[in-house]
Design a binder for these strands. Structure first.
Lengths: 217, 217, 217, 217
DNA sequence: AATGAATGAGAGTTCATTCAT
DNA sequence: GATGAATGAACTCTCATTCAT
């Protein structure tokens, strides 16, 4: 993914069955190559080869390499953001502890569902156009969390957006360690419980008794 | 940084003053190129040119491009890890709240001290060999925090390593957002305060009254 | 148009009305693409798209891209050569001045009639197989002019073929400038008059009084 | 040479002897490839191969393929324009017949001096960026001729620029036929004499007796 | 007949790395 | 030691052409 920002929109949508298969094969292939070779060795040739199609086919669906990677990243992020979004909507009006548990569970489940994909895409997200996509999806999640917090019955957050941003990224940080694969098994086992603890603690501290003074922590 | 992992050690240590100056010039040049052009366009030629030396000279100090980037990343990570390490040592035996404040302050200060560098190196860290370096420095920081927690007078953590790992990465997550440059000004202003809140809450919840049962979360 | 010269003949003659329409649509499309994108970007896909047919259909009528371009060029050249040919036949036995005026007028009119086409095809004519077609049509025109000159009543040209060749290409040279689009408006306005002057002068000088000595210029 | 107009300036001037040799080898190689394969098959790889250097070297001196071809064309055109220019300056104040002979001789000699080069570059000149270069050099030649005509003692041209433009392109037209290689030997032998005849006739007709009425042809 | 997805050779271009100067 | 011209493998992307539908 380069610094210049060209067209990253897919070229055409796969309407025929054959096309859909091709597009999906390329997605899976790209993730595999990303995992096994790293971003810089994740070339169009290798992706096509792995997918069992020709390079030409790749370029029928994406204007360039970056667009392919961006599309995969975007789909992934959409999935994650959607999952968290749904969890937030489903837990409006519940207790802060419930909210924390719900967000953590939804996020972790979404990431764990496509483990390899989640791992592979960190490198893509680090590149320029990837960072923008990540920022967008983060905004979406933060907005969902903030909205949920704003309607918390037992508490009154003075700055739900800020609180949501910190809350989400505080959860995303440790999750990343897990996905990067350098964490011990125990980390994996206890991550969810610890993240809930982390979030509950933070949201509990951030909360003011309803009707309390502004910014009173 | 490629997937194949060859020799990444610098070729010679800069014993002479001139060498040290050259090495530093290359480091600064690399960070600038990284920032302005992105990882994929951060070429040896461009780095050398920017540093005012010839490509040949660059190869006098590093066996290949990856070694150069790895060295820069390592130096950076060492600085950050060292800062947190010192803060931990300096706050042994203090209250949990003091510890939280100290770690957050040290980490944020280290990252903010070399803002551009911190930003530029995220992309380097995302590549395969970078991830290993990051994991190593994280282990060092986590060990320092765990050690500090293990000696907390007012509390008794059942698994300081796990707690330290979660604590550190929970702080690193939001910090990354800040550095990636997509955060609003208010985020910047209130980040430290919020991270302390986050950490204090987590560590407070994790703590058991001295002498309590194991693993009672 | 490539150096290798394979089959350049159209695959089938457009006997049906629909075929004729398709072929013409492709011709027009090709000229548009040629003008807007240049020869090297004048691809079969683009031509077909512009013509509103599929690439497959294009290959139903022409064995390859070069054949399509060659056919268009040939049609164009035929039109021009035919126009000059007719003018020559129509002015047999007239005065040299009349002949000059007639040739110039016919040639310019033919080129101006399909201005865009004339411009676009220069690039096609410059490629290897195009040059051969141009040479053929030039021969035809030169023969027509030579024939006309041979029957001039008031004069006796010692080498009508040579004279015709020089005459025609001397007219074609300035015309090309006009078509290439770099000429000022005044050039356009006065071109015909000047070309007639040019030709009249040349043919007048070349002419020997009937029965005069050979090669007396 | 594509429609988009990027940087066509050479990258660096060959200061060292080795570099100069490399650049010249590429020029000669390009002309050979152009002649033997045609523009579209005149690829950077083939040029480099023929020149006995690597593709990389080619790109050290020119930012892209078009720049290389443009540079060759420009050098060639400069040579031709310079020759005609000198001839014009050297024949100021001479008779119109002398002028005509001088211009024709200079132009033909310049073209014949580098026969293969002249032939090969027609195709390059037909592409977009080539056409612009040709137009520039033509303007230079036309200006030189016009200036010479303006100082003709025996005559008074009402529009030297127009006259010069017609005169030059009338000479260039037949010359092109010669260079394109489709002309018979006799054409070659008699071309110069015929072109002088052509030009003398035209300039003679265009001239008005000094002090005569405007536009009296 | 028509379509257009798929093909894959091949083009332009870059860049890590070497080595003669 | 320093230089930077030369190298050439490897990369991204295009496009003429085919053929299953």
């Amino acid at each position: 993914m380069n610094a210049v920002v060209p067209n990253l929109r897919p070229r055409k949508s796969p309407v025929q069955a054959r096309s859909a298969a091709t597009v999906d094969a390329m997605r899976i292939a790209a993730i595999q190559v990303l995992t096994q070779e790293g971003v810089s060795r994740c070339t169009t040739t290798r992706i096509a080869e792995r997918a069992g199609v020709s390079v030409g086919s790749l370029y029928q669906y994406y204007p360039n390499r970056d667009a392919l990677l961006a599309a995969i990243l975007e789909t992934h992020l959409d999935g994650v953001a959607g999952a968290v979004d749904r969890a937030c909507r489903a837990h409006r009006g519940r207790s802060v502890a419930d909210m924390a548990a719900a967000v953590v569970a939804a996020f972790l489940a979404a990431k764990r569902r496509n483990l390899q994909e989640s791992q592979a895409l960190y490198a893509v997200a680090a590149e320029l156009s990837g960072a923008a996509l990540v920022a967008r999806m983060r905004n979406r999640i933060v907005a969902a969390i903030a909205d949920m917090l704003a309607h918390a019955p037992e508490a009154d957050f003075d700055d739900p957006a800020m609180t949501g941003a910190i809350a989400f990224s505080a959860v995303a940080g440790p999750t990343r360690i897990l996905l990067e694969g350098y964490a011990p098994a125990e980390f994996d086992a206890r991550l969810e419980e610890q993240l809930i603890l982390l979030l509950t603690g933070y949201l509990g501290a951030r909360r003011r008794p309803a009707g309390g003074a502004k910014r009173g922590s």
